[in-house]
C-alpha cells in the first residue's frame, strides 16, 4: 500500500481534476439534456427532428472517438481550446444525450392530463414543460440520472487518453515509477468508488424528499 500512500499528493491532484471534470461536464450535460429533451417532446416537427438526430448521433459514437476527434480534429479547422476544457465540453455534449433520453422517459411517464391541464389554463408549451411536466418528470428520473452521473464520473477517466491528468492518468504515472499496479489501481478505484457512493447517497435522499403522493 506504500506505493499508494507515498504518492498521495499526485493522487489528490488527479482526484481534484476528476472532480472538476465531473462537476463541470455534469452541469453542462444537464443543460444540454434539458434542451434536447424539450426539443424531443416539442410540438414542432423540425425541433423534434433535430433532437432525435442529436441523441442518435451522440449515443452511437464511442466517447473516446469524440474525445480524440475533438482534441486532434478541431484544431485542424482552427478551433483549439485547452485539453481539460475540450474534454469537459465533449463529455457534457455526450452525456447530455443520455440525460435527454432519461428526461424524455420521465416526461412520458407524467400523465398526459397534466400537460393538458396546464395548456388548458393558458400556459404556453414552454411554461407547461417548465412548471408542470418537467418538475414531475425529474422526480421519476432521479435514479436514472444518478446512474448517468456515476457513469459520467467513470467516463472522465477517458480524458486520460487525450492528455488530461486526472485520477486514472495520475495512477498510470505513479505506476510507471513504482511498478505496483495492484495497490495503485486499487487505490484509484477506491477513490472512484467513494465518488459513486456519494452520488448514490445523494440520489437516494433526493428521491425520498421529492417523492410525490399519488
Amino acid at each position: 500500500m506504500s506505493a499508494f500512500l507515498d504518492h498521495l499528493p499526485e493522487f489528490w491532484q488527479g482526484l481534484i481534476v476528476t472532480l472538476q471534470l465531473t462537476a463541470a461536464s455534469f452541469a453542462g450535460a444537464a443543460v444540454v439534456g434539458l434542451l434536447i429533451a424539450a426539443m424531443r417532446v416539442s410540438p414542432v416537427p423540425v425541433l423534434r427532428g433535430i433532437g432525435t438526430a442529436y441523441v442518435e448521433t451522440l449515443q452511437n459514437l464511442p466517447l473516446l472517438v469524440l474525445l480524440v476527434l475533438a482534441v486532434f480534429g478541431l484544431p485542424e479547422i482552427g478551433l483549439q481550446a485547452g485539453l481539460q476544457v475540450t474534454a469537459t465540453v465533449v463529455i457534457a455534449l455526450y452525456e447530455g444525450a443520455y440525460i435527454a433520453e432519461a428526461l424524455r422517459s420521465g416526461v412520458n411517464a407524467v400523465a398526459s392530463g397534466q400537460g393538458e391541464a396546464a395548456r388548458a389554463l393558458g400556459l404556453t408549451f414552454g411554461q407547461s414543460l417548465r412548471h408542470v411536466v418537467l418538475p414531475q418528470a425529474l422526480r421519476t428520473v432521479i435514479q436514472p440520472i444518478g446512474n448517468i452521473f456515476i457513469a459520467l464520473t467513470m467516463n472522465t477517466s477517458l480524458a486520460a487518453a487525450v492528455g488530461v491528468v486526472e485520477l486514472t492518468a495520475a495512477a498510470n504515472r505513479v505506476n510507471l515509477l513504482e511498478a505496483q499496479p495492484i495497490p495503485i489501481f486499487v487505490g484509484a478505484g477506491l477513490a472512484y468508488a467513494v465518488v459513486a457512493a456519494c452520488a448514490g447517497l445523494v440520489t437516494g435522499r433526493l428521491e425520498r424528499r421529492l417523492a410525490v403522493v399519488r
Binding site: 473516446l64 472517438v65 480524440v68 480534429g73 485542424e76
Partner: peptide, 25 residues
Amino acid sequence: MVSMRRVAAVAAVSMVGLSAACSGT
C-alpha cells in the same frame, strides 16, 4: 475551407490514436 487531405490526415491520426488508446485500456 478545409482540404480533403487535411481531413483525411486527421481521420487517420484519430483512428491510429483510437486503436492505441483502446489497446491501452
